[in-house]
Each structure stands twice: as structure tokens, then as C-alpha cells.
Write a protein that binds this DNA or RNA. Sequence first.
DNA 1: AATAGGGTTACAC
DNA 2: GTGTAACCCTATT
Length: 215
Amino acid sequence: MVHNSSLFSSWTREEDKLFENALVLFPEETPERWEKIASKVPGKSSDDVQKHYEDLVRDLREIDSGMVELPNYEDEMDSPRWSSESGTNQMWLGGKSKERETERRKGVPWTPEEHRLFLYGLDKFGKGDWRSISRNAVVTRTPTQVASHAQKYFLRLNSMKKEKKRASIHDITGTVDSKSLGQSNDEKWATEPRNQQYNKNHGTSIGYQGFGYPM
DNA sequence: AATAGGGTTACAC
DNA sequence: GTGTAACCCTATT
């Protein structure tokens, strides 16, 4: 264990989740930011959350310095294979198959670290700059990956925000538009996906979109 | 079984 | 390259 800071001192997953949520809810410009964030995390003071954030930044700086590659998790998956057999297609045991065929990458879940990095990059580089985030923060993911993750992330955020508060007139967050950060497209993902005949082609996809897949 | 969740790819800009 | 919707698999209810 190289990266052992006070990050995991007494921060549970739930607290961390609340923290992350509050972090994006209250940007840097927010006055009394830590107060507000702390108010969303029961049991934590503003000092706690601020320290938590500092630890986060420090961790990121180390990575940014080009020292640490990336907090890697245990590789649980070696070579996900697709059973071409009939029936259920949900078999992907940890086989040591070295052969790699034209499978369609299953979908590697984001680790908490990656998500943390993502949030940090989001906070630092701003929404929309997936390239910078990919380059400087979440190095393990391509800009597309980051964008995709962000898409789902904000979709979820807006979803629960909408469900919690329902449609409210005070929900409009971008009246004055953004001046520096590109958060004007905040409501693009908030809108529910409409069923429009647009793209129907899929299935025979073998090419992978720029992913540093280990050979 | 249905759906929510989370991830990748195709396609337009 | 970037943004967005279609598509797809998995987990949960």
C-alpha cells in the first residue's frame, strides 16, 4: 500500500458518496462551501470535509506529478470471453485465455478511485473538458469514456434531483449563463431521451474506440 | 419479468 | 476529437 493517507480514516462509502454529491452540488464559487457540504454529510464538520478534500487534491497532485501510475485495484478480470453458445450469454469466468477475439468489451466498472479522480477533474477543469480530465485526472479512461461516465453521472444526478424536488421553477440554474465554465449544457442530459428513429445500426461492432487495451 | 444502472459504440458536429 | 443517443449487458426489485 503506497497511497495510504487519511482518506480512509473514518469515511465510509456512504459518507463519501454524500461528500461527492455535495462536491459537485456546490462548486468552488459557492460561498461557505464547506459548510454547505458538511451539512450534507451527517457527522462531519466543515473542517472534516475540507480536510477530506485536501487529501483528495494531494492524492491527485501526486498522480499529476507523474509518480504514481494510478491506484490500481486487484485485477479480477483477466480475459472476459463471450460464450458463443446458445442460451444465456452471461458467462465470463476468470479464464486465463490469452486469445482475444472480436468481442465487445463488456464494460469495466469504474472504480471509486476513478470516480474520485473524475470528480476532481470535473471540479478542476470544468464540465465538458473531458480531454483534460482524461489526460490529467482519470488517466485510465479515454475522453470518450469520461464523457460517457459524465453523461450517466449527470443523468443520474438530474434524475434524482428531479424526482426529489419535482419540477420547480427554481430549478433553473443557468439564467445568467456561464462565463467561464461550460455548464450551460447542464440541462441537456436532464431531458429525458426521446424516442426518435435515429440510429438503428448496431450489433456487428468489433472496433473499439480508442482504448488502451493491454496486449 | 421488468426496470434501473452503468458502460460502450455508432454517428453527427 | 467531442457530444449525444442507441444499444447492450448486469444487478436489483
